[in-house]
Computed example of a mutant assay.
Amino acid sequence: MKEILSTKNATIKEFKKLHKKKYREELQQYIIEGFHLIEEAVKAGAEIDWILFNQRGKTEWSDWLGQQPSELLIYVSDEVLVSLSELPTPQGMTAIVKMPDDEKKIDFSGGWLLLDNVQDPGNVGTMIRTADAAGLAGVILGEGSSDIYSTKVLRAMQGSNYHLPVIRKPLAEAIDRFKEAKVPVYGTELNPEAVSYRELSNSKDYALIMGNEGQGVATEFLEKADQNIYIPIKGAAESLNVAIAAGILMYHLENNN
């Protein structure tokens, strides 16, 4: 087991770079914070490069740490953990994880959530977590959507990225593939040609497109969809938050199979 007590350590400086997407992609690593996410990553077989912990981490999770390969462990000072954290109060443990290099495949069975330029990290993470909870087969992130390896998205997903495929792929290509496989594609929008989600016929396999927080789903994708749907609003609100709307639609589609 290694020990690093200075924030000026060269290794720590390298780890801090992983808060920027540019360096995550260059180094093919990302940071996760807190015991729960690290435990989920280990359970899922993610490739862990390093586990860093301070005295709090050692005290609270000593048994678990004792089960991990000693060559992966780094004991750090509180100051080092604070310097690596984007949380107001670090949770005693941080890990450096290798990005998976295997290209996950779309099998076109079950429900798939497609995100078109969804930029808010909380929304992206919440929708992936909800897709996991609702029992969807996977999530596809189109261009412009928030990076799933940012710490805000990772916190919002709460480990759901280890439970189902999360694939980054151009949506035009993905939608064409679903249509070729005879899987119905549903866009979401508010216009007279859309139908209430309650009117959809049951389908075990489907692709549901959710769009940008301000602009919605791009016109080119709405035109490709087999049917565009909406959620009726009874109150005075103009629209729903995209993550809330996605949750309503995913649970409806899964429970009506």
Results as ranks from 00 to 15, higher is better:
residue 1 M to A: 14
residue 3 E to A: 15
residue 6 S to G: 13
residue 9 N to C: 09
residue 15 F to A: 03
residue 17 K to T: 13
residue 18 L to G: 10
residue 19 H to A: 01
residue 23 Y to Q: 08
residue 26 E to D: 12
residue 36 H to A: 14
residue 38 I to E: 00
residue 41 A to Y: 00
residue 43 K to Q: 14
residue 44 A to L: 03
residue 47 E to H: 14
residue 47 E to T: 15
residue 53 F to D: 04
residue 70 S to I: 14
residue 73 L to R: 06
residue 73 L to E: 04
residue 74 I to Q: 00
residue 76 V to T: 09
residue 80 V to S: 01
residue 84 L to H: 05
residue 87 L to C: 05
residue 88 P to H: 00
residue 91 Q to L: 13
residue 93 M to F: 09
residue 96 I to Q: 04
residue 105 K to M: 11
residue 106 I to Y: 08
residue 106 I to Q: 03
residue 111 G to T: 04
residue 114 L to Q: 05
residue 114 L to I: 06
residue 114 L to N: 01
residue 124 V to W: 01
residue 124 V to L: 02
residue 127 M to S: 05
residue 131 A to P: 11
residue 135 G to Q: 04
residue 136 L to S: 01
residue 137 A to R: 13
residue 141 L to C: 03
residue 146 S to W: 02
residue 151 T to N: 09
residue 153 V to G: 06
residue 153 V to R: 01
residue 158 Q to R: 15
residue 161 N to M: 15
residue 166 V to D: 03
residue 167 I to Q: 04
residue 168 R to N: 06
residue 175 I to Y: 02
residue 177 R to K: 14
residue 181 A to P: 13
residue 183 V to T: 09
residue 188 T to L: 07
residue 188 T to F: 06
residue 190 L to D: 14
residue 196 S to P: 11
residue 202 N to T: 15
residue 206 Y to T: 08
residue 210 M to N: 04
residue 213 E to V: 05
residue 214 G to F: 09
residue 216 G to S: 07
residue 217 V to T: 05
residue 223 E to P: 15
residue 225 A to C: 08
residue 228 N to C: 13
residue 230 Y to H: 11
residue 230 Y to K: 07
residue 231 I to Y: 07
residue 231 I to A: 07
residue 231 I to W: 03
residue 233 I to S: 12
residue 240 L to N: 06
residue 240 L to Q: 08
residue 241 N to I: 00
residue 242 V to G: 01
residue 245 A to K: 08
residue 246 A to R: 05
residue 251 Y to M: 05
residue 256 N to I: 15
residue 257 N to Y: 11
